[in-house]
């Protein structure tokens, strides 16, 4: 049996309500809440970035996995906000957590699905027998240009998954990917904010890739939506995943637990992985989880997990996602948020 042996998530404590962003730009708050189903989002502290978020998430994953960090043979962090353009994020992580130095490390980038790609490769390396454990992480401190629709959703957080063969808490039954060159969203080298193609990001990009990956995954597995207790999809906002899931035949109830974007925002590479984390916090042995990510550019990764008896032993060994999402929040006003996100022009 191969799958997740330890998982952990981390969300910053800071939040901004979408009302304040809408007010700043004279937008219709109610229309945004209704149209995008977004209420508030996480904001990283000025001392937090993809690396610090990954370290905290991976620390919790290690607490749950209860393994010697030295046994981890690979660490991949997927993000579109790696603090360095050139210098791997995970070298810092391994030295912080006592992993390695005999370890494979790289930074992954594939817009919002770099995290699930990291998970997939970690899983595959264990499956190939190359190593006992591998760590895949999706984390981001996402940027959205001021006044752009993305500003309502771009948030911060991440999740880490240790893949292994022993004491598996969620077995990975099937995986797949569906990818094409679809220019819906990008950020050029040296640019601060990403650009996107407006409504083209919807049907031809997000919905097409999620649907085809999801449909193919169901066919590959021979399972149907009713065989699953939970489903989670990439959450660029509150509305899209609900629609994508519904079209594949999943119910609101199946998606409820992993649907965290209305209060978390879009943590990009950490989006569907963090939804998965919220599901693992409550799933029961035998439950099946359907997961499809999406990354602009564009592609979707699909995973089917089956929760094992081990889950009950590990879920209380680290903080739970809903607790981090619902408690100890520090709300920022727009000025503080603009300062935190370095949107104010300063002298060097």
């Amino acid at each position: 049996m191969i799958g997740i042996v330890g998982y952990g998530s981390y969300l910053p404590r800071y939040r901004i309500k979408v009302d304040l962003i809408a007010k700043q730009w004279g937008a219709d708050t109610e229309a945004i809440k209704r149209g995008l189903m977004l209420y508030e989002k996480t904001v990283p502290g000025t001392d937090e970035d993809t690396i610090t978020i990954s370290v905290e998430a991976a620390k919790y994953a290690l607490q749950r996995a209860r393994i010697d960090p030295q046994k981890i043979g690979a660490v991949y962090i997927g993000s579109e906000s790696h603090p360095y353009a050139v210098k791997p994020s995970a070298t810092i992580l391994i030295d912080a957590l006592g992993i390695g130095p005999h370890v494979h490390v790289a930074s992954y980038e594939f817009a919002c699905k770099a995290g699930t790609e990291a998970m997939y490769v970690a899983y595959s390396l264990v499956k190939a027998g190359e190593m006992e454990y591998a760590l895949g992480i999706g984390a981001d401190t996402s940027q959205g240009a001021p006044g752009d629709a993305l500003e309502y959703s771009a948030s911060a957080g991440g999740s880490a998954f240790i893949m292994g063969k022993e004491n598996v808490v969620a077995e990975i039954l099937f995986t797949n990917s569906y990818t094409s060159d679809t220019p819906d969203f990008w950020r050029r080298e040296h640019e601060f904010y990403p650009r996107h193609a407006g409504r083209f990001t919807g049907e031809p990009a997000y919905f097409k890739h999620i649907h085809n990956a999801g449909k193919n995954l169901l066919e590959k597995s021979g399972l149907s939506p009713k065989d699953f207790q939970f489903a989670v999809f990439h959450m660029p906002n509150g509305k899209f995943p609900q629609e994508a899931g519904k079209k594949l035949g999943f119910t609101k109830e199946q998606m409820e637990v992993g649907w965290i974007s209305p209060w978390m925002g879009n943590t990009y590479s950490g989006s569907s992985p963090t939804g998965l984390s919220a599901i693992l916090d409550v799933a029961k042995p035998g439950d099946k989880i359907f997961m499809v990510s999406f990354g602009s550019g564009a592609g979707s990764d699909g995973f089917i997990y089956k929760v094992t008896n081990e889950i009950d032993k590990v879920r209380d060994l680290a903080p739970k996602l809903r607790d981090m999402l619902d408690n100890d929040k520090i709300y920022l006003d727009y000025g503080e948020y603009a300062k935190f996100r370095k949107k104010i022009i300063l002298n060097e």
């Binding site: 001392d47 937090e48 603090p83 360095y84």
Partner: peptide, 17 residues
């Protein structure tokens, strides 16, 4: 104690954790 960024070495230098 948690792992955080402590300081930046200007705009192009190291992030210091």
């Amino acid at each position: 104690l948690v792992f955080r960024k402590i300081q930046d070495e200007g705009k192009s230098g190291l992030h210091c954790y």
